[in-house]
Design a protein around this nucleic acid. Sequence first.
DNA 1: AATTTTATGTAGCGGTTGCTACATGTATAA
DNA 2: TTATACATGTAGCAACCGCTACATAAAATT
Lengths: 182, 182
Amino acid sequence: MDKKELKKRELTESMKTYILENGLAKSSLRNLAKASDTSDRMLLHYFQDKEELMTDVLQAITQDLIQLLKANETGTWPLKTLIPYLSQMMKEPVIKPYLNLWLELMAEASKKEEPYYSAARDIASSFKNFYKEVLMVEPGQSKEHMDAFALVLVEGMVMMDALDFDDDIRNALGGLNELGEN
Amino acid sequence: MDKKELKKRELTESMKTYILENGLAKSSLRNLAKASDTSDRMLLHYFQDKEELMTDVLQAITQDLIQLLKANETGTWPLKTLIPYLSQMMKEPVIKPYLNLWLELMAEASKKEEPYYSAARDIASSFKNFYKEVLMVEPGQSKEHMDAFALVLVEGMVMMDALDFDDDIRNALGGLNELGEN
DNA sequence: AATTTTATGTAGCGGTTGCTACATGTATAA
DNA sequence: TTATACATGTAGCAACCGCTACATAAAATT
């Protein structure tokens, strides 16, 4: 492998950590450089510009997140088990940084700002694949429909979690159960 | 009424428009001033600092949004009617700027950044009140639960809408129907 | 009419941002 | 060994940011 490519991956690794801990807004070249024990000058030596750099790092973060999701994958679950489980998982300190970044990414994505829009769409697609693999569906329900339903529901919970609207997350879980049993 | 207070409201009005059209990121004092046909110097004459200014404008925007929601209020609706209706409403050009701003606000809120965190919580509370007034619940369902459920579901749809995941919104609506009828 | 308060302009400070020009050392290839 | 490519440092630019000091004109109050 190219020596330059190797260095890029090493840099990407440390920048990943910084971005997850500090968010996009604080991720200036100078800050990212400091976190990687180098200079902004060097970052722009290895990456053409900030956009290429962010594209690479966000892609790496996406891969990590997918790994994280797959790691806890143990078979398939019905909606009423999966959703409460995920709402609990959102509270995990390992997950929280990803959720914060996810929301920041969404804000950029809603303005169709690149490379954020593409990165956000990639991540959302990974979420969809996750449900595709892990969600068990009841007779009379379309798998495709319920996958999308789970996706939307969990995204909504992520938002409420960011506002510390924990009661509403709990209540919504209650609502989900009442919906399925009439 | 105070003459100064009157001028503040006039400025707030033009800044509202600018922020809705351009987002928080571009809302520097200089840009807001230009949009209000004045100078940053004058904005800081009428408002103590940028935080006070943003608090005022965001509050005004929140009020507008509440008005918008209430305007289309005609009685109460069951979940399966209300949610599809709202998912359509999200496509309205009048609404879109509010949704973009909402996501940008959420990104700040997730970092507990003031005044954005408070503003976002206020807006979310208004949403809750909206469902409280407009959502009709079926026997065996808790009103409180279903209000929160609607809130979460629609927020999730706002996110998917920002990514242009229209298929998934449609599919999720399908899923919602299948859930209620088994 | 004199005095005090308010409105507004001009200019700038100290900070951040992405990025670049220019230099020099250091490793690799001929 | 010499020539060429790569690595890295130093310094700075031009554009922003929120905010302030200083001045003056206009308006309101006494």
